[in-house]
Simulated assay, not measured.
Amino acid sequence: MNSSLGLAAELTDAVARLGAPETVPAKARFFQALPGGYAAGDKFLGVRVPQLRGLARRYRSQVTVDDAEELLLSEWHEVRLLGAILLVEMFSRADALAQRRIATLMLKRIERLNNWDLIDSSIPYTLGPWLYRNPAERHVLIELADDDLLWRRRAAVMATFAFIRAGEFGETLDLAAKLLGDPHDLIHKAVGWMLREVGARDRQVLDTFLDEHAPSMPRTMLRYAIEKHSPAERHEILMRKRK
Rank of each mutant, 00 (worst) to 15 (best):
R58M: 04
M221Y: 06
S4M: 06
E70K: 02
R203I: 02
D174S: 04
L206V: 12
I237W: 06
G36S: 13
A166V: 05
A94C: 01
R165S: 14
M158G: 00
E89C: 14
Q62K: 13
W76R: 12
R154S: 05
E233V: 13
R60E: 08
A232C: 05
R153D: 02
L113E: 10
D202P: 09
L82R: 09
I187Q: 01
D146F: 01
T160N: 06
D147G: 02
E197P: 06
I226N: 08
L82E: 11
L180A: 00
V140G: 00
G181N: 14
L34T: 15
A94W: 07
I237K: 08
I123P: 12
R153W: 05
L87I: 10
E227G: 01
H229V: 13
W116H: 13
K43C: 04
W76S: 05
Y132H: 11
L173D: 00
Q204W: 01
S230N: 07
R165T: 09
A16H: 15
L45M: 11
I102C: 10
L150C: 04
K43M: 01
A162E: 06
D42Y: 14
D202G: 07
G199K: 07
L97Y: 13
E197G: 02
D185K: 10
N2F: 02
K243E: 10
T104L: 07
L179H: 01
A84S: 15
R219Q: 12
P183L: 00
Y125R: 14
L45P: 09
R48Q: 10
L97K: 12
A190L: 04
Y38F: 12
P218E: 02
V47G: 01
A39R: 13
F209R: 03
L113I: 15
F169A: 03
I187W: 00
D117C: 08
S74W: 08
A155H: 09
F209Q: 04
V79E: 07
